[in-house]
C-alpha cells in the first residue's frame, strides 16, 4: 500500500457510531462488525479526501502518547481493504 493513496467506504457499507454499544460499527447486508476504539478512530477519518499519510499525521497529533501509530493505521486500513470495507477513491 502506498501511503499517498486515498480510500473511501465501499458501496453498500455503512459506518456509524452506536450509542447502545458505545462503539463505532461497520454495517453491511445482514451483518455488523463492532470496531474497537483504535479501529474506529482510523476508519472514521477515511472519507475519500484524506490520504493514509494525512490520517497518520492527524492521529499522531490526536494521540501524542501512542507509539508507532503509523504501522497501526496502515495495518488497519489494509485489513479493511481485504475485508472489502474500503476501496480506493478516485
Amino acid at each position: 500500500m502506498n501511503n499517498t493513496e486515498i480510500y473511501t467506504l465501499a458501496p453498500h457499507y455503512r459506518f456509524q457510531w452506536e450509542e447502545a454499544q458505545q462503539s463505532y460499527v461497520m454495517l453491511f447486508p445482514e451483518g455488523m462488525i463492532k470496531l474497537n476504539g483504535g479501529a474506529g478512530e482510523v476508519i472514521r477519518r477515511v472519507d475519500g479526501k484524506r490520504s493514509v499519510d494525512e490520517i497518520v499525521h492527524e492521529l499522531k497529533l490526536a494521540f501524542p502518547d501512542v507509539d508507532d501509530i503509523e504501522s497501526d493505521v496502515v495495518a488497519m486500513i489494509q485489513l479493511a481493504v481485504e475485508k472489502s470495507w474500503l476501496v480506493l477513491a478516485n
Binding site: 447502545a20 454499544q21 445482514e30 451483518g31 455488523m32 462488525i33 463492532k34
Partner: peptide, 14 residues
C-alpha cells in the same frame, strides 16, 4: 445468524 457479531457483552437485540 447472518454474520452479526457474537461478541456481545450485555444482552441487547442487534
Amino acid at each position: 445468524n447472518n454474520g452479526v457479531a457474537a461478541s456481545v457483552t450485555q444482552t441487547q437485540p442487534l
